[in-house]
Each structure stands twice: as structure tokens, then as C-alpha cells.
Design a protein around this nucleic acid. Structure first.
Lengths: 218, 218, 218, 218
DNA sequence: CATGAATGAGACTTCATTCAT
DNA sequence: GATGAATGAAGTCTCATTCAT
């Protein structure tokens, strides 16, 4: 395990079961009303503890918000390093690139969807509490870029992908997936969204081949 | 002028100069601290009026927030209909598709950037006040889809674009632009962003031709 | 008027009528229950304003306490400079020293008694908020010492008083008066206190001539 | 032993070692922050016990405060009766009155100084919890008055002291000592205090002979 | 219309006290 | 007897909103 994870492991191990219960209650309440409009009394009720107990575990209400980086890292960063990446590389050999990418897309969408309240809260509150993004900026993003770069470069070497900037390619894929998830949440009819499998396949096709008619040679 | 715009025109015409001064002050303050953490007293100071005056023009603080759809529509929806679209079609004939799209991208990015406080506020608060998105969902998005559909269909007919779902194509372009703007605001270094013109060109290239090595025939 | 008073004048002039109303309510409530055990709601009720109004005039509850130095200075320091001293000197010429001192004692006891709640509060809270004593330490005490020194020195020159340290003499007189007032408040029976005039005369006699049988020559 | 002491002895004997440890911790903490601003958790930490344990020994926080009369009586009242008084009388015969009084003053100042936290706490809190003074009012003060009366009367009989009210003389001595100790704690510079021995000698001189020039005969 | 003093509901937070272990 | 997690009542302070001037 990398050094940079040590601190989060320690944090995680310091968190008792009740810590987690309260934190999850906060994620739920904050995601429904927003941090500012949420009441610590609601978090307490949701967690099944008294209001005072919250403050035995989290110094302030704000602390409850900033502590959300912990599950964020635990659920998104650690799996990124320990599991998914290996899996992608292990399973790549004998499969079509498209299948691999489709799997990745399915997997990421599933992960995001199952953590939507957490992500929604962090994403919206990060606009006014930028420190929430620090671990993403400083640890997750660089690691993600590193992994993506390695993957894309290998594909370029194999001749399956064009020699585009791997970070650009990564950003583009994330943008497409992010846009899809956002539209699906916010205005699925207006954007005429279909079932997820179809959408992901269409996105992947567009990601791989673009929208232009193929009349150019590289 | 379409019927659906009437209401906004009326609203706009009802808004006095002081309405706008207060509303702009609110956009500024809300975008810096977030709606919940902003104080009506700060908005008053920023607008150069007394606190009581705000409530002569806007019934409640929430009213200040929901009223932000007005400038949003005025600045994004009306130009969409009256100006840019015509321009795109007018200038299309004698120019390369790529140039046209690049112009559109530049134009949209510029528009978003010049209205970032307003968009940031509406985007984050919409998470907990969905009614903020109603005019977007019900008026802007359909109109946008309509325009895009017409445009993409004509291009398909000309043989410049593949026959992909125009709404998918629209969403994809918006996603790429949105992802770019977001990354530029949030973590430009981690995502290794370069100057805007370069980024937009790379995005357009990727949008048109995808990331895959062109070895397939349609 | 001396420079050192300017700041307090300014402070005093900045204080509106409502400032004073709240401050006096606070003095009353604090003196009955102590600062810590007093509730801002009680101060509000006593002042006849809403609880919120208190915080329009005093930033915090603590501010209410520290602001008590203002009436303290206004009522004890200013009269000290402007009135009493002159009076003492003016009336000295043609009167017995004992009468003059007795007048001073009566006057000071009266002043203290009429401000007992304020003094009680400042005295007890100063034990844990030493900044309350700053104006006393830095302005009142030195001025008092200066006045006393001048007075005692003149008396020594006249041959009415022994050549003792004027500051010691001042302290001793204050101690005797303070002890008297304290005992009167706290345990008048146990200390067998009599009517005030008698007590003050006995104290003055003791102050002037001591307890020892006069068998010594200086 | 007098009847009136029985209760305190009993109380004292009921107090276990842990009682004392907690009580002394409370004295320390209360004297630093004041009763109201002190936290039982701090007392617990200072005493080296858990917070719950405090409440096994003292029913409430208030109980901790009122229990402080116990050490107060133990340290001030009992020695008063059992030791010092006898000593004073025993040593009086063959010594100058001044030496005796100076010894008493030195002894009392030393006793007060070595118990300053306790006295400071009781003195300030007594302003709002008068019951703290009950044992002083009802037991210590009368005893003290009794002893002083006997002493002063004997001195008057010997011709060493004027025939002043012994209680007045007692109060005056206590006032001078109290004022000295207070000034020494609160504003030693402003009151130009010198070393203790000098101060006590000067106070005694003033106490015995007054400030007036001796030109009168009794 | 504009003002800003006054309001008071309600939020966060503290902390003495309890009690199961 | 000792512990310390849990409690919840209560306190200070904030701030959107009102309204008399």
C-alpha cells in the first residue's frame, strides 16, 4: 500500500462504528437539503442518537461536512488503486478494447450511482468549501492520471488508439460519463435518454470514433 | 417572438433598474459564499441599498435566488434564439464544419465564463431547489435540442457527419465543454490544461474523430 | 479636561440611550446572579427589549461585562478629577482636617453604596477577567495616588499629619472604608456595626490616632 | 473540643482521600477560571479521575463549591482555636506588643497567601452563594471576635492600647491586612508596594499610631 | 419609496449528570 | 467503586423579515 494512503487508513481505523453511523446520516440529510439548510437535529434523528452525541464525535457541524472526504476516499480512491486497475490490466489481454472500456464505464457509473448522495453533497458544497476537494486534487486525480496515461500509452503502442494526450482522453471520457449521469438525474426526458446499457454503448462509440464521417486519413 | 418568451419579457420589463442592481449584487454575494451562507445584509451593502429595501423588491431571500432564472434566461435563452443560431446557419454555407463548431465552442465558453458567478450559483443551488431548472428543462433544453437536431441532420445530409443521434451528439459536445470548464475552474494543474484555444481545438478533434485508430468502415 | 479622558468621553457619547438602558439592566442582573449565571434573556427582559436587540448593541455577552468599565469610569473617575478634588482643596482652608476627611469618607461611602451593584459585579468578575481593572489600574489609581500625595504632603507641611508615605496613608484609608462597607454588607451583626455616622467617626479616629496608648514621642 | 466543631470534624472524617483529591482539584480549577466557567471535566482531569467519579463523591457541581467551606474551616478556624491563640497568649508575657502583633500579621498573611486559591474562590463566589459564608458568619467570626476582645481588653488593662472598641480594632486590623493582600495581588505597582516585611511594619506603625501628628492628649 | 432598529424563532453547541458496564 | 459514552436541556447568538418613521 502506498504511503499516501496511510493517513486515510489511520483515519478510517480511528473512526468507530458510531462515527460511521453519524457520518452516513449526515450524508443522507445533507444530500437532501444541502449542508446549510440541514439541521444537526435532523442528522441526530437520522442517526438515531441524541443531538449532543454528534458533537462527541464531530467537533462542529462543519467537521461533519469535511469528514465526508473520508468515505469519498475510502470508496473511490482505494478501490481505484487496489482493485479496479489490476482488474482492467489483467483482463485486457484477451479482450477487445471496447469491451474493456465498456466494463470500466459500467463499473464507474455503478459506483457513482451507488454513492450519489455523497457525491452530490461533496460536489455542490465544494463550490464554497474548496478544501473538500484537496484529497481529490492532490491524491486521486494524479493517481488517476497516472493510471490512465499508462493504459492509453499501451493502447497507442498496440495501435488500437490514436496518439492523443492521455489526460485529454481521460478528461473526455470522464466528461462524457459525468454529463450522462448529470443529465440522467436532472432532465432525462429533455435529453431523450434511453436505458443505461444503450446510452453507454452509444457514448463509447462516439468516444472511440467521433461524430465526423470518416473521410480523413491520419 | 415565441409565446413562451412573453412571460420572461414581461418579467424583464417589470424589473426596474434597482431590481437589477439588487439581483446582480445577490449573484455576486451568493456566488462567493453560497446562497445559504450569504446574508441579506451583505447583498444590501453590495447593492448600495438598505436592508429593508431588498424586501421592497423581493419578497423573501429565496425570491432573490429564484429570480436568478431571469438573467439566466435573458442571457442564455434569448441570444440562443435570436442571434447565435441564425448566425451559425448564416455563416455555415461557406465555411468548414470544423470552423463553425470551433466558433460555437468559443462563443459558448466565452458566454459561460462571463456569467460564471450566475451559473455557479444556479448550478449548485439547483441541487436543492430544482425549480431553478424548470425554465431550462422546459424551454431552453427543448429549443436547444430542436436547433441542434436541425443542424446535425443537415450535416448528416451533406455527408459531413455520421448519422448519430443528434441529441446524443449535442449532449456529448456539451459534456466535453462542461467538463473542460469545470476542470479549468477546479483543478487545472492536475488535469494539465493548456491555453484555451489549444484545448478547444483538441476537444473538437476528439469530438469529431474519436480516440480510436481509424481502421473501421461504416 | 485631561487627554486621558477623551477616549471615555467619546465612548460615552457613542453610547445611545438604549445602550445605557441595556447596560444598566445587565448591571442589575449580573449583580444579582453573577455574570456566569445570568442569562441574556433576563437582561433583555429587565431592559425591556428583545433578546436579539441586546446583540445589536453589544457584540457578545462578554462585551456587556467589559462595557461596565464605562459607567465605572464615568461615575468614579470623572467626578474624582472634575469635582471632588477641587472641592476638597477649596473647602480645606477654613476647616478642621477631621471635618474634611469625614466629608470625604461620607462622600465616598455614599458613592460606593449608590453604585454597589456595579462595583460588586466588576469586583467579583475582575477576579477572572482582569482586563476589567485595566482602566482602574492605568488611569484611576495613578490619578488617585497623585491627588492623595499632594493632599497629604500639604498636610504634613502644615504639621497636621505625620510624615508617612502618602500612598500608604491612602491605601490605609481605602482599606478601612472598604472593610467597613464589606462587613456592613456581609456580616453586620457579627461585626457589631452601628449606624454609619458613628462608624465613620470611629474609623476616622482610629485612622488618625491609631490604637496605641500615646506614650511615644516622634 | 467545642460542640460547634463536631460537625466539621465529622465531615472531615467522612472525607476520604479521594474526596480531598477532587476537592483540591476543584479549588485549583475554580480559582483559575471561576466556578461558573469551570468544567467538571477539567476538575476530573486535574484530579486524575474520570468525570463520573466526581459524581460518586459530590452530588452536584454546586456541591463541590459548597464543600470548600470544609478546608476553609479546617485550615482557618481550627488553627485559630487550637494553636495560634494559645501561642499568642503564651508568648505575649515577655514580649513587646508590637512584636506580638507583627507576628500575628505575618502569620495571617502567610496563611492567606498559602491558601489564596481557596480564599479567592470562596470570596468571589460568596457574592452569589451567600451560604458559603455561613460558617464564617456563625462560627469563625464570633470566635475571632471573642478572642480579639479578650486580647484587646487585656492590653487596655495593661495600658498598652487605647480603650477603643475591640471589634472595631479587630476589623481595622483585618481591613488593613486585607487591603494590603488585595492590592498586592491586583495592582502592586500602582500602589507602590514594597517588600512584605516593610509593608507589614509600616501598616503596624500606622495601625498603632495613626496618621495624625501627635499633639493631643487623651 | 427608503430606511434601519427591533424582533424572535431557531440554530449550533456546551456540559452537568446519569447509568450500563 | 470506577468509568466514560450518551443524554438533552438550555444558552448564546444569528439573521430574515417587519414596520414605524
Amino acid at each position: 500500500m502506498s504511503d499516501e494512503m496511510r493517513q486515510f487508513d489511520q483515519i478510517e481505523e480511528e473512526l468507530t462504528e458510531k462515527h460511521w453511523k453519524i457520518l452516513e446520516a449526515a450524508v443522507k440529510v445533507f444530500s437532501e437539503k444541502g449542508y446549510g439548510a440541514s439541521r444537526t437535529s435532523e442528522v441526530a434523528k437520522e442517526a438515531g442518537v441524541s443531538e449532543g452525541t454528534i458533537f462527541n464525535y464531530f467537533k462542529t457541524k462543519k467537521d461533519l461536512l469535511t469528514s465526508m472526504v473520508i468515505p469519498l476516499v475510502v470508496r473511490f480512491f482505494r478501490p481505484l488503486i487496489l482493485l479496479s486497475v489490476e482488474k482492467i490490466f489483467r483482463t485486457r489481454k484477451d479482450r477487445e478494447l471496447e469491451d474493456v472500456l465498456l466494463d470500466v464505464m459500467r463499473d464507474r457509473v455503478k459506483l457513482v450511482k451507488s454513492n450519489l448522495p455523497l457525491i452530490k453533497t461533496v460536489a455542490t458544497e465544494a463550490a464554497y468549501h474548496p478544501e473538500l476537494l484537496d484529497p481529490i486534487r492532490e491524491q486521486m486525480a494524479p493517481k488517476l492520471v497516472e493510471i490512465a496515461a499508462k493504459f492509453f500509452q499501451e493502447e497507442v503502442a498496440k495501435g488500437t488508439l490514436r496518439d492523443v494526450d492521455p489526460v485529454l482522453a481521460l478528461r473526455a471520457l470522464m466528461s462524457l460519463l459525468g454529463g450522462y449521469i448529470l443529465m440522467r438525474e436532472v432532465m432525462p426526458e429533455a435529453m431523450r435518454l434511453q436505458d443505461e446499457e444503450t446510452e453507454l454503448r452509444r457514448l463509447l462509440d462516439l468516444y472511440l470514433h467521433g461524430v465526423a464521417k470518416q473521410d480523413r486519413q491520419e
